[in-house]
């Protein structure tokens, strides 16, 4: 049954324009953003950091992807039919997370190495210090934010609210909280995601994972309690 839910979410993702555009935008943002930033970077800027610039833009695209996959189903009323097919409900959420996370991972695995290693001045090679962490962190960050966005969308069931919350947590809150306490800012999804690439992978990955898991768990709980 869970396999059926997975196949269903796969069909749903590719049969709408918006998610397909979001996936494509994320991929283009990683490569084009990285190349433009690397080309425009003044001397002295770490070429690796410049080439990962596009990942920061791609975060917005995968945030929209995650939120829309959850909310478009509520806004169209389709969720009732989906829940009729899968009355336990939570497998639907798990299937959505696997599909959104999996597709994001696939796009990131293809585009991040292209952005880092292809063309431009000051080439980066796979053996350089921090390169593997940066690659893994970039992929992990995008997957983590996409799944966090999915959980948030399923919690609020409204696209505008969901996108607002996720963009806030990714791009606005880190700076805002940073002005008060740099220590606290480390625990905000956006800052943890960046630190996965630029600092250490695991502790920061654990923070982002915790956010994503909390969003999904909260959504799964409400899914059981709320009338569809």
């Amino acid at each position: 049954m869970t396999f059926g839910a997975l196949r269903s979410e796969w069909v749903k993702l590719w049969s709408l324009r918006a998610p397909v555009w979001a996936v494509a935008t994320a991929g283009v943002a990683v490569v084009a953003g990285g190349m433009l930033a690397a080309g425009a970077a003044p001397p002295g800027v770490d070429p690796l950091v410049a080439r990962l610039e596009g990942v920061q833009y791609a975060r917005f695209a995968v945030a929209v992807l995650g939120v829309l996959v959850a909310t478009s189903e509520y806004s169209s009323g389709l969720m009732r039919w989906t829940f009729a097919a899968v009355p336990a409900r939570w497998p639907v959420l798990v299937a959505k997370a696997v599909v959104v996370g999996g597709v994001t991972a696939l796009v990131a695995l293809v585009t991040v190495p292209v952005a880092v290693f292809a063309g431009g001045p000051g080439p980066v090679s796979p053996g350089d210090a921090g390169v593997l962490t940066a690659l893994g962190g970039a992929v992990g960050q995008l997957v983590g934010i996409a799944v966090f966005a999915l959980g948030t969308g399923a919690l609020v069931r409204n696209a505008a609210a969901g996108i607002g919350i996720v963009i806030g947590a990714v791009a606005i809150l880190p700076g805002l909280i940073g002005t008060v306490s740099a220590d606290a800012a480390r625990f905000v999804p956006g800052r943890a995601g960046e630190a996965m690439m630029t600092d250490t992978f695991w502790p920061n990955a654990a923070i982002l994972l915790a956010w994503a898991a909390a969003g999904l768990a909260g959504a799964a709980y409400l899914l059981r309690r709320r009338d569809a």
Binding site: W10, V11, S15, V92
Partner: peptide, 11 residues
Amino acid sequence: AHLRALAAAGS
């Protein structure tokens, strides 16, 4: 696609 997605969900 609508029907295919729901057919999959319902196995």
